[in-house]
């Protein structure tokens, strides 16, 4: 199989999925949100899934030709250059900063625990996309000074609501799950509720701010 006929940024992922990739970054991601909305409105029989700097189409290859979706992706990307970003929600996440790895993150950063908390609570984080677990948001905006590599040994069970740092990412575990992130705190907020009208609390384009609480 060759994909020579495809746009350089478009690759087949099997016969039933197509991935459109651009250089990751906030501006590119804002365009991908717009492109994704545009495509969802026009191709409702395709599932569109955002990644970090990429957008995947999942489709029935006996119903839709990949080349048609390739053209749709190119058109959507071009149109996204002029799209006005849809305003996202602003969500405050109350956090008890008592995570088991908080001291390690502080030591790694050469900072005090209080300084780590101050740096973690100061930015407005942007939800780039969801994935990994239902309701899990990939957040952009972590202060590089508190970036920290993953744990060498992942934990078998990280509780729901745990807030962690992995590399230069921070995130919230919506469900109990195995995981290798450095845990710095925990929230009581529910990030995923299958019974809710909108099951995921966060959506791409939302802004998140962590707020320290003591109980």
């Amino acid at each position: 199989m060759t994909d020579e006929e495809l746009h350089p940024g478009i690759q087949l992922l099997g016969e039933a999925a197509l991935v459109f990739s651009v250089a990751p970054g906030l501006q590119a991601q804002q365009r991908l949100w717009a492109a994704c909305r545009w495509l969802q409105q026009r191709h409702a029989d395709v599932e569109w899934v955002l990644g970090m700097g990429n957008l995947t189409a999942r489709f029935d290859p006996l119903v839709i030709k990949a080349t048609r979706l390739e053209r749709a992706l190119e058109t959507a990307w071009a149109a996204s250059a002029d799209a006005v970003p849809a305003p996202g929600k602003q969500v405050e996440i109350p956090v008890r900063y008592t995570g088991a790895d908080l001291a390690h993150v502080a030591e790694h950063a050469g900072l005090t625990v209080a300084e780590v908390i101050a740096l973690h609570t100061s930015p407005d984080y942007t939800v780039f996309c969801l994935g990994f677990l239902p309701g899990f948001a990939y957040l952009g905006g972590l202060d590089e000074r508190i970036a920290c590599p993953r744990r060498a040994e992942p934990r078998l069970k990280v509780p729901a609501g745990a807030i962690g740092i992995a590399g230069s990412q921070t995130g919230i575990y919506p469900l109990a799950s195995p995981g290798g992130w450095q845990l710095i705190g925990r929230t009581s907020l529910s990030l995923f509720d299958a019974a809710a009208a909108t099951p995921a609390l966060l959506a791409p384009g939302d802004t998140v701010r962590f707020v320290e609480v003591t109980r």
């Binding site: 992922l13 999925a17 991935v19 990751p24 990644g51 970090m52 990429n54 995947t56 990939y138």
Partner: peptide, 10 residues
């Protein structure tokens, strides 16, 4: 790689 969608069969 930057996080991206995967599906059964990958």
């Amino acid at each position: 790689l930057p996080s991206h969608a995967v599906q059964p069969g990958v």
